[in-house]
């Protein structure tokens, strides 16, 4: 299902905060239609890397191309599913209105009827169309996360980015979420950012790790690790088998 079009490419990217070098000489890429996991422990620079991809931070060195453009220019082609950990349960809003937010422009007002139709379509993709009129705060944590996936899908993006999609989720909700992602795989490029260093979903084509520093470097870098089948629905990350971030690994590694 994947093609050779590059969806995201980092070339020698470095980023630092005033007193802290976070990323140094990061180079990796993946293709359109692929299902990618980007893993790293807490504090490794995952959030910074995500902000760079989303165009919320600018690198001090190197270039980032997202769907053929700079991240800032291509932000409308991205469907982003944040953790939304600071969610306010007293905020009055319905499920449908949350999903319509995925179509909001920087200053423009959209067509209400068209937006409603698209929001309903997106809710159907995550099998939650029957909850469209319900208050968002009445949903379970797993349902809320799927609503956020629908919000990201609403603008029919070329790429879906999910930050810690399974955090604080029970097994059944997680299974439903990954069933939705399996349905989308191939038609949409999917990037999952997670702190789980050992296991990833069996949907994953390639896994990139925010790894230790390169020799002589201060900031962290990104390397590609091999994957092996572990048990039903899960793949294990082979941290002992490192590949270059720019190496296209088409064949799954099987031990």
């Amino acid at each position: 299902m994947t093609d050779q079009t590059i969806a995201l490419q980092f070339t020698s990217v470095s980023f630092s905060y005033p007193a802290l070098q976070v990323l140094e000489d990061v180079s990796f890429h993946f293709h359109s239609g692929e299902f990618i996991a980007l893993v790293g422990p807490n504090g490794s620079g995952k959030t910074t890397l995500l902000k760079l991809i989303l165009g919320l931070e600018q690198p001090q060195a190197g270039t980032i191309r997202l769907l053929g453009q700079s991240p800032k220019k291509s932000s409308n082609l991205i469907g982003y599913v944040p953790q939304h950990a600071s969610y306010d349960p007293t905020f009055p809003i319905t499920v449908q209105e949350v999903v319509r937010m995925g179509l909001v422009g920087s200053v423009k007002r959209g067509q209400r009827k068209q937006e409603l139709e698209q929001a309903l379509w997106a809710l159907e993709q995550v099998e939650l169309a029957h909850l469209a009129s319900r208050p968002y705060s009445e949903l379970s944590g797993g349902q809320r996360r799927r609503v956020l996936v629908a919000r990201a899908l609403c603008a029919k993006p070329g790429m879906l980015i999910l930050d810690e999609p399974a955090a604080n989720m029970d097994k059944e909700s997680e299974r439903r979420l990954y069933a939705t992602l399996a349905h989308l795989k191939g038609a949409t490029t999917i990037l999952i950012v997670t702190h789980d260093m050992r296991q990833v979903s069996d949907l994953t084509d390639r896994v990139f790790c925010i790894d230790a520093h390169k020799e002589g470097g201060v900031g962290r870098t990104v390397v590609q690790h091999a994957l092996e089948d572990y048990e039903d629905g899960i793949k294990r990350v082979r941290h002992d088998v490192k590949l270059s971030g720019d190496q296209c690994q088409k064949e799954a590694f099987n031990g």
């Binding site: 989303l54 409308n76 982003y80 944040p82 939304h84 905020f91 209105e97 937010m101 909001v104 422009g105």
Partner: peptide, 17 residues
């Protein structure tokens, strides 16, 4: 729409430009 989005989820609103 902009006021609602930035009040509900500021990070997402930023990504939407």
């Amino acid at each position: 729409p902009q006021i609602e989005a930035s009040a509900f989820d500021e990070e997402f609103a930023q990504v939407r430009g």
